[in-house]
Computed example of a mutant assay.
Amino acid sequence: MLWPFGSTWRPMRQKLRGTVDLRWLTARSWTTKWYPQGIDLGIWEGRRTLAVSWFRQDRMRQHLASRIAFVDLERSRHLDVALAIEDADGELLPAQIHAGGLAWFGDRLFVAATGQGIWEFDLSDLRRVRGPLARRLAGARGRGRRAGALVAVRSRVHPVPLRCSYLGRVFDDAGEPLRRVLIGEYRGDENGRIGEFSIPEDPDGRFDRLDQFSPGIPSMQGAVRWGDRYLVSQSDGMRAGVLWSGGRDSLKRDSVALPVGCEDLALDLEARLLWSLGEHPWRRVVRGIPFSRLGFDA
């Protein structure tokens, strides 16, 4: 399958064993330069597609670049799009953010930029770049050659009065998506906050806070809401991730384990799956957990 500008999709491996597991078939399965973080679901040219964010770091753990891998769920293939910003002279620079969470609304992709609010990228205006610029936006160094890269350019920065470690979608009781997101803070202690914000329809509008609470869960990595039910992911080092589920003030540990090194969460109401992913090298997986295992179909 081809994407804009004739770019080809790269394959992933899919296994069905109670969950839908997608695994990378390239060096990204084990690299320590790039780490997957955020996840959300959207439609691209009529096809159901997962968006998975990655950030690149150097040996000093400094952020160099970020990208989105768009995964065609029907064919289990993916395509990378680099994230970029424009400077005052119109030059493209790599988006040096953690990209800890995603919320995808049509052509508007919102990315959690830890400590820097929410960054918005325009998917209706992807650009093709080549040569040294492609290498720079991809966070690569040295003189190696790179044929080219697709780039999504930041269109707006939305200040938010939270650390913005992750970002998740909100649905009503009937499963209809709302123009709202959950924005949360990763902290090693129990003081991390989750806020619910409305998405501005006007690009110049602001994220308005509608609610905020502290569930008392350390190391929160993602959160989504369906009606009155919240789902929160919690990482636990090299052990399986923990899923918390329930009402705003009554979250309980679920018996279903998340991937090792779990990160963000995304609800897939059409396929009736909860998506998450693991970030650790050699253990990286994009996993869809059936709602029936979570008690959603009871």
Score class of each variant (00 low, 15 high):
R77H: 15
R61Q: 04
R61S: 05
A82C: 11
V71C: 05
S66I: 08
I68Q: 05
V71P: 02
A69I: 02
S66E: 12
V71M: 08
L79V: 08
I68Y: 00
R59S: 04
D80G: 06
H63V: 10
M60N: 10
F70D: 07
S66P: 00
L79A: 12
E74H: 13
D80P: 02
A84G: 04
R59D: 12
R61Y: 00
D80M: 13
S66D: 10
R59H: 07
R61D: 06
A65Y: 01
E74D: 13
S76A: 15
R67V: 05
V71Q: 06
I68W: 02
R75D: 12
L83R: 04
A65W: 00
D58L: 04
A82S: 11
V71N: 07
A84H: 13
S76F: 14
M60E: 14
A65E: 10
H63Q: 01
F70R: 12
R75A: 09
R77L: 13
D87F: 08
F55V: 08
E74K: 07
V81K: 07
L73T: 15
H63C: 01
I68V: 14
Q62D: 07
A82W: 03
D87R: 13
E86D: 11
V81D: 06
I85Y: 05
F55S: 07
R59A: 02
D87W: 13
R67Q: 14
R67W: 02
A69N: 06
L83D: 04
R77S: 15
R61M: 03
I68P: 01
D72P: 01
W54R: 11
L64H: 01
I85M: 04
Q57H: 05
D80C: 11
R59G: 14
R75H: 15
D58Y: 00
H78L: 14
L73C: 14
W54K: 10
A84C: 08
F70K: 14
A84K: 04
A69V: 04
R56E: 08
R56D: 03
H78R: 08
A84L: 09
A84E: 08
L64C: 07
S76N: 09
A82F: 02
I85T: 09
R75E: 10
A84F: 15
S76M: 04
V71G: 06
L79Y: 03
S76H: 13
A65T: 12
S66H: 03
L64Q: 10
R75Q: 11
I68F: 01
F70A: 13
W54I: 09
Q57V: 12
R77P: 11
R56G: 04
F70I: 06
A84V: 12
R56K: 14
I85C: 01
I85Q: 03
R77G: 15
A69Y: 01
M60L: 11
I85N: 01
A65R: 03
I85A: 03
W54G: 03
H78G: 11
R67K: 13
L79W: 02
S66Q: 09
D58S: 02
R67G: 03
F55P: 00
